[in-house]
Design a protein around this nucleic acid. Sequence first.
DNA 1: CCTACCGATCGGTAGG
DNA 2: CCTACCGATCGGTAGG
Lengths: 199, 199
Amino acid sequence: MSPRKSAIETAATRTRIIECALTLASAEGLEGVTIGRLATELGMSKAGVIGHFGTKEALQLATLDAAVERFRARVPVRVAGADPGVARLARAFGEWIDSMADDEGNAGCFITSVATEFDGRPGPVRDAVLAALASWAGYVAAELRAAVEAGDLPGDTDVDQLVFELNGVALAAEQAIQLHRDPAAPERARRAIDRLLGR
Amino acid sequence: MSPRKSAIETAATRTRIIECALTLASAEGLEGVTIGRLATELGMSKAGVIGHFGTKEALQLATLDAAVERFRARVPVRVAGADPGVARLARAFGEWIDSMADDEGNAGCFITSVATEFDGRPGPVRDAVLAALASWAGYVAAELRAAVEAGDLPGDTDVDQLVFELNGVALAAEQAIQLHRDPAAPERARRAIDRLLGR
DNA sequence: CCTACCGATCGGTAGG
DNA sequence: CCTACCGATCGGTAGG
């Protein structure tokens, strides 16, 4: 028997569950993460797993949240010290591209996968993905505006168009790395990003 | 009772099943297409559905095949009459982008979705997706080489890099259209394609 | 192409 | 956090 855990232990278990869900979801998609499978993988009961979240949807949202947080720590936070504008943005995309090749804990890829998986299913998960993507797009747009301001990009730059095209490069990199395991993809992506940023 | 159908009727039923599977898969993913749901949707028994394919995986492969065929008919075949090289390629991507906005029967989007859904699951479905994407990439690369040959693109064009970037624009367009329902996306995509093709 | 059925697994709950 | 259990659904088969 193992009831009556402290709040700290409870939180640690919750983290373990979410970490496991992230790993499973990377391979099988978020809908493929079943409570039973998590329980088996973690050596606990189904009730013990779902008890932390209440419903499967809450578990999915918590997992997505964790991925968003991980992406934030891995990309924007890590380049926060760089010069605003083109320099910071190039480093940010560089970090993202690097993180795609790390097989473990690819949060950016996870978010993109969930975006595709839920694009036709209205609901809280889809809404949360939209919010995460919008937040990232807002970050990129702000950096681009700073770059225009600083004169690193032409004054007539179409910022939204550039956000769109930068995103395309990232999506192409993810497909090339995840699906094709193409070792040339990171370099191609970097080259495309540099050209889009006028470097 | 409705056994002893002619071969023609049998083939027609098979087509109906696949068409329904394509519709369901566009919303729920290929793994979300269950035999029971197809049966309900089509007003037939589960045994009647699965009898046409044997296993769910065979049904998935048949559905993917149908999507590939539909994409071929919608894009490369439709622009076969255009001048080889840049002109034909621009029209091909234009057709693809147009087809993304047609809510019904978006084969290109379907293939991309399945690519993401199965990128971490080795097996025949993943192999078939890889083959379909490789075939499309080969088509694009051949047109680009023709364009270089014809002098429409610089002699030092990195064809593989360009295939990568064109693919990125298509993926960005699909995300913007399917997930964000952004009405500006087709125009953005067209502009990006034109610039990549030096038009 | 149907009815009737199989064992397995799904998300979730009751009660402790 | 566990055991024991619920109704629903899964892919698939037997037999006609």
